[in-house]
């Protein structure tokens, strides 16, 4: 099993202290597996815990409870030092291309940083022969290597960020909203790059985004998160063609349709109200406060993940 799955997450829980005795329930009991060479998309609104989930998996945060198994190795409680060699297998692409690159470093130094950190090259100069092809691969040129990150446009920066994440040839890349800060005309460039690299190297992505159409396009499997819970997970076409969870339905109905004729026919299917505070999440199913189909039971018992047929997993009392 484990040699098939690059990543296995079991009942992952991450709580943050929020001053005093308050606890933010960022991620609560999330489980999924990611097969080698595949892409798993995680979608949800801001505050649903998808980013915390990613950052806990990559052990930027310590795990509160549960297990993270990377390529058959349990990394849940590893010390940072033990983890270091494993970091080569697991890299991350960040949301904000402005904040994620150090403005005081040249592009070459930024891309060479992982090489130096893992002792693959000793000197920055020696990194050139690895850095240049990478730069060209992401559509930039050698001349860009000596420029500083602050001189680049958002899309160019994001490609530098991708080059940094991919230069170690990782097996798993966690993409934390890699396109949401980019202009529409640039997003497709980045998505194509990621897809090409996957085809070439057979790596796996954990792709986090709130743009549902993009997630569907890149992912093999999609998980929908709401307030720290994973509410539905299945094959990506299935989730869009046949959403089961009321939240998934609402989310899909909220996507603006880039077609005025269809948009006019669209019925109002969106979800009313706001996402509750993760400090005091609702009892039972966390979505029941906004759910149009809520039953009394929903406010009391937390629904378990069930197979609704064909590997379509959903956590809802309706099924």
């Amino acid at each position: 099993m484990s040699d098939q799955n690059i990543l296995e997450v079991r009942d992952l829980t991450k709580h943050f202290k929020a001053g005093g005795k308050q606890v933010v329930h960022a991620v609560d009991g999330v489980s999924f597996t990611l097969a080698r060479g595949k892409t798993l998309g995680l979608v949800g609104e801001s505050g649903c815990g998808k980013s915390s989930c990613a950052r806990t998996i990559i052990r930027m945060y310590d795990v509160t409870a549960g297990q993270v198994i990377l390529d058959g190795t349990d990394i849940t409680n590893m010390k940072q030092k033990e983890l270091k060699p494993l970091r080569k297998k697991m890299q991350m692409i960040f949301q904000d291309p402005y904040a994620s690159l150090n403005a005081r470093m040249t592009v070459r130094d930024i891309i060479a940083e992982p090489l130096i950190a893992h002792g693959i090259v000793k000197k920055k100069e020696a990194a050139n022969e690895l850095v240049y092809p990478m730069l060209e691969w992401v559509g930039l040129t050698k001349e860009h290597a000596n420029r500083y990150a602050h001189e680049f446009s958002g899309g160019q920066r994001q490609r530098v960020g991708i080059a940094r994440a991919l230069i170690l040839q990782p097996e798993l890349v966690i993409c934390d909203e890699p396109i949401s800060a980019l202009d529409v005309s640039i997003q497709a460039q980045v998505i194509n790059l990621l897809k090409d690299f996957q085809e070439e190297k057979g790596l796996s992505y954990l792709f986090i985004a709130h743009d549902l159409s993009m997630v569907r396009y890149v992912s093999d499997e999609v998980g929908v998160m709401y307030l720290g819970h994973l509410v539905e997970i299945c094959e990506s076409n299935e989730i869009y063609d046949n959403p089961l969870h009321p939240y998934t339905k609402g989310l899909l109905g909220s996507i603006p349709i880039a077609n005025p004729k269809l948009a006019r026919q669209k019925e109002k299917s969106g979800i009313e109200g706001d996402i509750p505070s993760p400090i005091h999440p609702p009892q039972g199913c966390r979505f029941h406060t906004r759910c149009p189909f809520a039953k009394p039971e929903c406010g009391e018992v937390k629904p378990q993940m069930k197979d609704a047929g064909g590997g379509h997993m959903v956590a809802c009392h309706l099924y």
């Binding site: 890299q91 960040f94 150090n102 992982p114 960020g161 940094r164």
Partner: peptide
């Protein structure tokens, strides 16, 4: 994020 990135890189 760039410091977090350095951490995930393993610096």
């Amino acid at each position: 994020e760039f410091v977090l990135a350095a951490k995930t890189i393993g610096s």
